[in-house]
Amino acid sequence: MGQARPTFERRQLGLTLRRLRDEAGKTQQAAADAVGKVRSRIIELEDGKATISQEDLAKLLDCYDVTGEERSTVLELGAQARHRQKRRVYVDHLPDAYQRFADLEASATEINWFETGIIPGLLQSPLYMKAILAECEGVWWEPSTQEGEDRLAFRIERQRRLLDPPDQRIVRIVVTEDALRANMGSTEAMREQLRHILALFKENRDLTVRVLPNDTYGNPVRGTGLWYFGFGDRATPVGYSPAVPGPAIYYDDEADTTAMSRAFYRVWELALSRVESRRFIERVEKELFE
């Protein structure tokens, strides 16, 4: 392993290896022993500050009992991490891209999130999640497969990781009014969803939700959405903009992340305050269900 600049590819590899080690119940010292290195090299690797040879990476995966498609994916991540690539965006074409997105998200100290027309994932109630997955089944994946159930379990676990962590993070989410009024699944699902958001206001002080009313002017992210992740002094920011299911596209070029940060904070300033947003959601609930 060699000391390296923490490129996005190396950060993704490091986060993946940290998760696999945790899932295997192995210590960093055990991982170091498996490749014949000192523990500090595993720390550097998991922090995205070191590269690793294909041979040593295979030894780590043996230590973590990683096999099959997942093993092939991590070996490909390792190959990408060993080469400095001149590019403006990073496109994750490999399987299970949603898991690496969650790893990146969980490592952030600051999450800024805007989506239009849909309740963002961290705020979704169980019935709302099921309604979304039901709309996708038979379109983005074959009906009656395990994928829908896996995605539901993944979403629930992702919420747990981010909303109940021992180390708190700053979470800012902007919800659009049309998402609050959408007919997602059933009346019961939408009622549960609105009440779920209101409950989150009370339970999570570090979670700040703001509502962007439909009649707001000046929204620079209209019709799309974006995430902006901050990592304090540990790493440079990363931006992400969603598209239809397919390759995950990330931005870590300073010009791009600066523009994405500016766009998010413009929407944040346009949205109602936390208190006004809570009252707005309460009014929507009464209008729709009383």
Score class of each variant (00 low, 15 high):
residue 168 Q to D: 15
residue 139 V to W: 13
residue 168 Q to S: 15
residue 139 V to L: 13
residue 153 A to L: 14
residue 138 G to A: 09
residue 137 E to G: 03
residue 136 C to S: 15
residue 168 Q to R: 14
residue 156 I to G: 04
residue 142 E to W: 05
residue 152 L to K: 03
residue 125 S to E: 01
residue 143 P to N: 07
residue 161 R to V: 04
residue 154 F to S: 05
residue 148 G to P: 01
residue 142 E to Y: 09
residue 149 E to T: 13
residue 166 P to R: 10
residue 149 E to F: 08
residue 142 E to F: 06
residue 132 I to E: 01
residue 161 R to T: 04
residue 130 K to F: 05
residue 129 M to W: 03
residue 162 L to P: 00
residue 127 L to V: 01
residue 126 P to L: 05
residue 131 A to G: 02
residue 137 E to M: 06
residue 153 A to V: 10
residue 134 A to F: 06
residue 158 R to S: 02
residue 157 E to D: 15
residue 128 Y to C: 01
residue 137 E to Q: 07
residue 149 E to G: 11
residue 150 D to L: 12
residue 142 E to D: 09
residue 150 D to E: 14
residue 136 C to F: 13
residue 160 R to T: 09
residue 138 G to T: 08
residue 150 D to Y: 09
residue 134 A to S: 13
residue 144 S to M: 02
residue 159 Q to S: 00
residue 163 L to N: 00
residue 129 M to Y: 03
residue 135 E to C: 10
residue 166 P to F: 12
residue 159 Q to M: 00
residue 148 G to I: 03
residue 156 I to K: 12
residue 148 G to L: 10
residue 155 R to H: 08
residue 152 L to V: 06
residue 151 R to T: 04
residue 152 L to P: 01
residue 137 E to W: 04
residue 137 E to T: 06
residue 125 S to C: 03
residue 140 W to F: 15
residue 153 A to W: 08
residue 129 M to H: 02
residue 153 A to P: 02
residue 152 L to N: 02
residue 157 E to F: 04
residue 124 Q to S: 03
residue 137 E to R: 05
residue 136 C to R: 15
residue 126 P to N: 08
residue 167 D to I: 15
residue 166 P to T: 15
